[in-house]
Simulated scan of single mutants.
Amino acid sequence: MISFAGMARAGTASLLLIATVLALSPAFADDGFPFGSEMTLDVDRQRGSKRIPNLEIGDKGEVILELWCKGGKGQFSVAGNTVIFVPGAMENRTCPSDRAQQDDELIAALAEAGTWKRQGDFVSFVGAKTLRFRINTN
């Protein structure tokens, strides 16, 4: 005869195993986080500049940032629709102070984002300010 407590333990163990596998498996689905991709900020070019900020995201969440003026590294951690971005040291390049300020604001907005969502080739990081990036598919 099977006891209720035994069934409950088996069910709990099964749920924990499934949750662990899902948490440890990388998100490679088409609607998942775009690990291993390059993305460009969905904005127009600034007057006098050919650059548009972009992120190159590695398979483990490591990021290379090329902004309007600055460049550097960072790290994304993703669990479901929750995202954490930790910026690393940024290289200060010679540029106008307004562009450097926009770079700082962009980095701060990425760091403040708490969730993300993907709609086709677009990924949005949502916090106090929403940042929308296009996944480069070329």
Rank of each mutant, 00 (worst) to 15 (best):
T20V: 12
D30Q: 08
A23D: 07
I57M: 00
G11D: 08
G88C: 04
S37F: 07
Q102M: 13
I18K: 11
A29M: 09
G120I: 06
F125N: 01
S77Y: 05
D30M: 08
A29P: 04
D121A: 06
L16A: 14
R47G: 14
Q75H: 06
L67M: 04
D30P: 00
I107F: 02
S77A: 08
V83Y: 01
G48Q: 01
A89N: 14
K73P: 14
L55G: 03
I64L: 11
V78F: 04
V83N: 02
C95D: 05
F85I: 03
R47E: 14
E56Y: 07
G32K: 02
S37H: 07
R118I: 01
L16K: 05
E38I: 12
V83K: 01
D31S: 07
G72K: 06
A113I: 01
G11E: 09
P96R: 12
T115A: 00
L16Y: 05
M39W: 06
I84V: 14
S3Q: 05
L41D: 00
R99V: 10
P53V: 04
R118D: 03
F35K: 08
A109L: 03
V86E: 08
I107P: 06
F76S: 01
L15W: 11
A10C: 06
A10Q: 06
S49N: 09
Q101K: 13
G32F: 02
L15N: 15
A23H: 07
T137V: 10
A13L: 05
K70W: 12
S3L: 04
P87M: 05
R45V: 10
D104W: 08
K129T: 10
A10W: 02
A27D: 10
A100Q: 13
F133T: 00
I135C: 01
F85A: 00
G11T: 11
A109Q: 00
A5K: 08
T130D: 04
S49Q: 09
S37K: 09
G88K: 00
F4C: 15
R9P: 03
T40I: 10
R132C: 04
S124M: 01
T40K: 06
G71N: 11
A5C: 07
R51N: 12
T20H: 12
M7A: 10
S77V: 13
G88A: 04
D42N: 09
V43T: 11
Q46E: 13
L65W: 10
N92W: 14
C95F: 04
I107T: 07
E112V: 03
Q119A: 12
G58W: 00
F76R: 03
